[in-house]
Amino acid sequence: MKLSELVKDWGGFERLVADLHNTGDVKVEHNVVLKGRSGAPRQIDVLITHTHGLYH
């Protein structure tokens, strides 16, 4: 079975992934646009930022 057959609502799936990772120890953002190395804008579905320990 293909993933596209399981997931019909990609926006809902992205929000589910964001919610699953939103534990309070990380910053979770949905639908973020960041500048890539080339300077071009890059759309990120779910951006998870860990700000504890060595990973800031």
Rank of each mutant, 00 (worst) to 15 (best):
M1Y: 03
K2C: 04
L3D: 07
L3M: 10
S4D: 09
E5K: 14
L6E: 06
V7Q: 02
K8G: 10
K8A: 12
D9I: 03
W10S: 07
G11M: 05
G11V: 12
G11P: 13
G12C: 01
F13K: 02
E14Y: 04
E14V: 02
E14W: 01
L16K: 13
V17K: 01
A18M: 07
D19Y: 04
D19W: 03
D19E: 12
D19R: 14
L20K: 06
H21Q: 05
N22C: 04
N22D: 15
N22E: 11
T23W: 02
T23R: 10
T23E: 09
G24M: 10
G24A: 10
G24T: 02
V26I: 07
V26R: 15
V28E: 11
V28D: 13
H30I: 15
N31C: 12
V32H: 05
V32F: 07
V33E: 14
V33A: 08
V33C: 09
L34V: 08
K35M: 05
K35H: 02
R37K: 13
S38C: 11
S38A: 15
A40C: 04
P41N: 13
P41M: 13
I44M: 10
D45M: 00
V46E: 05
I48N: 06
T51V: 10
T51Q: 14
H52R: 15
H52L: 14
L54M: 06
Y55R: 07
